[in-house]
Nucleic acid binder design. Structure first.
Lengths: 110, 110
DNA sequence: TATGTTTAATCTACAATATAGAATATATAA
DNA sequence: TTATATATTCTATATTGTAGATTAAACATA
């Protein structure tokens, strides 16, 4: 099959990057905090997982359950990681945006 | 009011850039062709106008009908232009993406 | 071992964005 | 007055984005 490559939604794009940045430590709450702190995007846990789930079902990321031995109690974490296919999608997406920005300058009015 | 700034969808982002690049000549078919040629994104006219419409209703772009005097026949064109608010949104969006990309390198595997 | 507290993930429902293709409008040419 | 060309509008649906309540699993301690 032709593997009709779709484009990433913006939130998907940003989420993939969050996973890459967090590396070993990419799980729900951590991701949420990162997004909040770096780009002030304040998303709910539900929104977060829904998109992660979708990304996984598209094969762009993978996930696995971590050790169930937290310090003070609490359920085990589910860690996420970007797969090769996800990295490729990121490259494409970024590439397209960069191409479109070529020659555009917003230096002035706004 | 706090003017809760939303994020641009990816297609919205790309469309705004297309308008900026086309300048005076930004109307349906032309936009569609540009997208096809620069980033190989082959979108239908319907999809295109639907998004332009949304962008306009959000106040990010404006539009006006052009001269109804084409060479060989055909309906008058509707031209689009990016407003200051649209430029601002672009800046924000681009800024967020750039921030998230900081420190991320995809040099290798994919 | 029951009950509370903590941390985290899943579920449910809905809103916004993306997308296509048919239908319609308007102009010119024959 | 009909055909042809160019362009926009309409209608319908799929995919993404979003929130908040609910459930799960661990630990502490009475």
């Amino acid at each position: 099959m032709t593997d009709k490559e779709k484009f990433l939604g913006e939130f998907e794009h940003v989420l993939l990057l969050a996973l890459l940045r967090l590396g070993q430590d990419a799980y729900g709450a951590k991701i949420r905090t990162l997004l909040k702190e770096t780009i002030e995007r304040d998303v709910s846990i539900g929104a977060l997982y829904a998109t992660l789930e979708r990304l996984e079902s598209k094969g762009l990321i993978g996930s696995f359950m971590g050790e169930s031995t937290p310090e003070r109690g609490g359920r085990a974490k589910r860690y996420f990681e970007v797969k090769a296919k996800g990295k490729l999608a990121l490259k494409r997406s970024r590439g397209a945006i960069d191409l479109m920005w070529q020659g555009v300058s917003l230096s002035c009015e706004c």
